[in-house]
Each structure stands twice: as structure tokens, then as C-alpha cells.
Computed example of a mutant assay.
Amino acid sequence: MLSTLEVFTTVVVGVMVGVEFAVAFVMNPILNALPEDSRQSGHAHGGRMLGAVMPVWYIGSLVLVGVWAVAGRHHDGTALVVAAGALLLLSVVMSVLLLVPINNRNKTWTPENRPADWQEQVRRWERLHYVRVAVIIAAFTLLVSALV
């Protein structure tokens, strides 16, 4: 049963990392190459869509890692799982305190009502997102290491 939990958790976190990596290094560059109104609309739509899914994914991943850490507390690699959990917790805290407030504003903007500094706010979100991606990649790497 523990092996199933380990693999399932690693896959869930790995897919989350893949989605967030794709947002940072594929979707945002595509959106940023569009004309201004389309760019802003695309960012707002992405914020609405992923803003609905990612909180569940982040919290679910953290819970799964916590269950793994408790269930496997007497096995090799538990320290790596706990460290991964700490990094995922950091990513949740970063999200709630830094990224979500920007996203909550961004997802309501239209070309008609966006603030004058909307591009700077999007760029700030993107910079913070790069840091968050690095944190969750590190967490994923620790989970994979704990498996071997």
C-alpha cells in the first residue's frame, strides 16, 4: 500500500510541476507575444481557469506528501519526503501571500477595465511564478529521490 501511495503522490506532484513549468516557459511566452488586448485577455482567462484548479492540486499534493511522510516514517527516504513537504508548504504560502492576490485582480480585467500598470503586475506574477516553479521542482526531485 505504501508503494502505491508513493508512486501516486509522485505522479500527482510531477504532473503539477509539468503544468506549472509549461505555464512559465510555454504559455506565458506565447501569451506575451500576442497583441496587447489579446495578451491581457489570455492572461485573465488562464488566471480564471488555472486559478480554479491549482489550489486543489497544491493542497492535495501537500496532503499526499504528508500522508506519505507519516505512513513511511520508519522507511528510508522519509527525511527527503518531509523536506519535499516543507517545500510544497512554502509553495502554498508563496501562492497565497504573493501570487493569488495578483491573479485575483488579473482574472477580472478586460481591455476596458484593466489598470494602467497591468503589465507590470503580470510581470511581477511571472517572476514570482518562476521562483515557485523552482521550489516545486526541488520538491518533486526530493520525492523521486525518496523513491530510490
Rank of each mutant, 00 (worst) to 15 (best):
V67F: 14
V144K: 04
D37Y: 02
P29E: 02
D76K: 01
L64H: 03
T78H: 12
G77A: 07
G42V: 07
L128N: 06
V135M: 11
V96Y: 14
A146G: 07
V19D: 09
S91H: 09
G85M: 11
S95N: 09
V7H: 04
G47A: 14
M27P: 00
L80A: 10
N104S: 12
L99A: 12
F21E: 01
E6W: 03
V122L: 15
L90N: 00
I136E: 12
P115A: 13
L64W: 04
L98P: 00
L80C: 04
L62A: 15
V17H: 03
V144F: 14
W118Y: 09
D117L: 12
E126A: 13
A71W: 10
R123I: 02
R127E: 06
R39N: 06
D37H: 11
L142F: 13
V17K: 03
G77M: 06
M54Q: 05
G47F: 04
E120A: 15
A22N: 04
T110C: 11
A79M: 11
N28L: 11
A44H: 03
V63L: 15
W109A: 13
V144N: 08
W125H: 10
F25D: 00
P29T: 00
R48V: 07
N113L: 11
D117S: 08
V96D: 06
L87G: 12
H45F: 14
R124M: 11
V7G: 02
G42Q: 05
L143T: 03
L99W: 01
R124V: 05
V13D: 04
V15E: 05
G66K: 05
H75W: 05
I102D: 10
V11K: 00
Q119S: 14
D37F: 05
I59Y: 14
V81I: 15
W68G: 02
L99K: 00
L99I: 11
Q119M: 10
V17Y: 08
H74D: 15
V26E: 04
D117W: 08
S61H: 04
L64S: 08
V131P: 01
L142R: 02
R39S: 10
N32P: 02
L87D: 11
L99T: 02
G51P: 09
V100H: 04
R73Q: 12
V17C: 14
L98N: 02
A24K: 00
L98A: 12
A69M: 09
E112Y: 06
T4R: 05
E120T: 10
V92A: 15
T110V: 04
V15P: 03
V65E: 13
P115H: 08
T110W: 10
A83K: 01
L128Y: 13
A83P: 07
N28H: 09
N28T: 06
L97G: 01
V19R: 11
V70R: 01
